[in-house]
Simulated scan of single mutants.
Amino acid sequence: MSIIPIKSTGVAAVLLKEINNIYHVLLLKRASHPLHNIWCYIGGGIDEGETAIQAIYREIAEETGITEVVLYSSNQFDQIFSPQENYIYIAPVFVGFVHQEQSVVLNDEHSDYQWLPFEQAKEVVSLPGNEDVLQSIEHNFVKKKPLTYLQI
């Protein structure tokens, strides 16, 4: 019997900012392959010796320049099957709340960004399953008060 390996070597984050009393999601446009021109939220690998939490703080800072964020575990996961390499990739998704005045400074991994209300963000995200993650985050972190248990 053959198995499909599962790799959990990365993290993801959905950043939220309140603009005109409506929460908006930060989406980034990838500038490099394999996801060139794909709109997505923050994601990246876990470096040797890092925890997932250390990795997501680093990835947020590297990809957006944002260093002040109130972070939660979303209890959601990005899940992708790689048909070329025959493995399942799974990454915990974190939720970060940022201040209204927080600006974004992109690194060279991305060519553009936009803050979008949830309904628009769910239409713009490119990878199947991302809209489900956004739906869950909207339901559990915007429409409801986030559980303090999940705060990092």
Score class of each variant (00 low, 15 high):
36 H>N: 13
37 N>C: 04
37 N>V: 00
37 N>W: 02
38 I>E: 12
38 I>K: 12
39 W>C: 03
39 W>Q: 03
40 C>G: 10
41 Y>H: 11
41 Y>E: 01
42 I>N: 00
42 I>R: 00
42 I>C: 03
42 I>T: 02
43 G>N: 10
43 G>Q: 06
45 G>Y: 12
46 I>D: 03
46 I>F: 06
47 D>Q: 13
48 E>Y: 14
49 G>D: 05
49 G>K: 06
49 G>C: 07
50 E>T: 02
51 T>C: 05
51 T>Y: 08
52 A>M: 13
52 A>D: 14
54 Q>F: 04
54 Q>N: 13
54 Q>M: 14
54 Q>T: 14
54 Q>P: 10
55 A>N: 07
55 A>V: 06
56 I>C: 09
57 Y>F: 15
57 Y>Q: 14
58 R>S: 11
58 R>T: 08
58 R>D: 09
59 E>H: 06
59 E>K: 12
60 I>M: 01
60 I>C: 04
61 A>H: 05
61 A>V: 01
61 A>W: 02
62 E>W: 01
63 E>W: 07
63 E>H: 11
64 T>Y: 03
64 T>F: 05
64 T>H: 05
64 T>R: 06
66 I>F: 10
66 I>C: 13
66 I>W: 07
66 I>H: 11
67 T>R: 15
67 T>D: 12
67 T>S: 14
68 E>L: 13
68 E>Y: 08
68 E>I: 08
68 E>C: 09
68 E>T: 14
69 V>A: 11
69 V>E: 08
70 V>M: 11
70 V>T: 15
71 L>G: 02
71 L>P: 04
71 L>M: 13
72 Y>K: 01
72 Y>L: 03
73 S>V: 03
73 S>H: 07
75 N>T: 02
76 Q>W: 02
76 Q>G: 00
76 Q>S: 10
76 Q>K: 08
